[in-house]
């Protein structure tokens, strides 16, 4: 009896293990379990560095009634009413949503429509429109001047040649200046970012989606 026990033969087991290993390596079932993300669809325009608005140049040209003209081409002829600016025929698309700043002539010069008004007779051209904003938004303008508000492009050296600082009107519509909402670019599609909050992961999380699809046997 004792002898028999000594002779228990485990080699078939080892062979079985080896064969199992072989099949495992050949079948390679782990390969497809890695949840690869598809490549996110982001076009060149999505990450363009162009400002969100194009501004007017000096003199300001607009495309109205089929022609390109500057403001004075018309306003030389049409005299403005003295009191309430009226807009029955032109510029009807312009809706002011600028807080209590609700008068066209707070900003546009009455006598010379190709210029913006600062104070009294003092006016600035359209390519210096930040001076206009400065008269009411002093602190923001000061920040902008120091490169703290708004965006500078080119170099991190403060006064390097070729730096461009975006103007206020390249980000804010002067008539309705609140910054617009936009559609966000695709969310990350990876598990390899050291999840900060798996516990709070939303349904959008690829981890959640992967777990869900796995339990449904869809994978």
């Amino acid at each position: 009896m004792a002898r028999n026990r000594d002779n228990i033969d485990i080699s078939p087991v080892i062979v079985l293990v080896f064969v199992a290993c072989t099949t495992w390596f050949i079948a390679d079932p782990q390969d497809e379990r890695i949840p690869y993300a598809s490549v996110a669809n982001v076009s060149k325009e999505d990450i363009s560095t162009a400002p969100i608005r194009t501004r007017l140049s000096d003199p300001p040209m607009v495309h109205l009634g089929g022609y390109d003209r500057d403001c004075n081409d018309c306003h030389r002829i049409f005299k403005s009413l003295d009191k309430t600016p009226n807009r029955a025929f032109q510029h009807v698309d312009i809706k002011l949503n600028h807080g209590r700043n609700s008068r066209c002539f707070n900003c546009h010069a009455k006598a010379d429509r190709n210029r913006l008004t600062i104070y009294g007779e003092m006016t600035v051209s359209y390519d210096q429109s930040e001076q206009l904003c400065a008269k009411c938004h002093g602190t923001t303008f000061k920040d902008w001047n120091r490169g703290i508000h708004g965006r500078t492009m080119g170099s991190w050296q403060p006064h390097a040649a070729g730096n461009t600082r975006l103007k206020c009107v390249e980000c804010h519509n002067p008539h309705s200046p609140a910054y617009l909402r936009m559609k966000p670019l695709p969310s990350p599609h990876t598990l390899r970012m050291g999840e900060p909050s798996i516990a709070h992961a939303t349904e959008d999380s690829p981890l959640t989606q992967w777990i869900l699809s796995d339990t449904e046997g869809a994978h």
Binding site: R181, M182, K183, P184, P186, S187, P188, M193, P196, S197, A199, H200, A201, T202, D204, S205, P206
Partner: peptide, 13 residues
């Protein structure tokens, strides 16, 4: 940061 979410997917932000 425990209350944060980086997978947000909204129509607009």
């Amino acid at each position: 940061i425990e209350k944060s979410n980086h997978h947000y997917n909204r129509a607009s932000v």
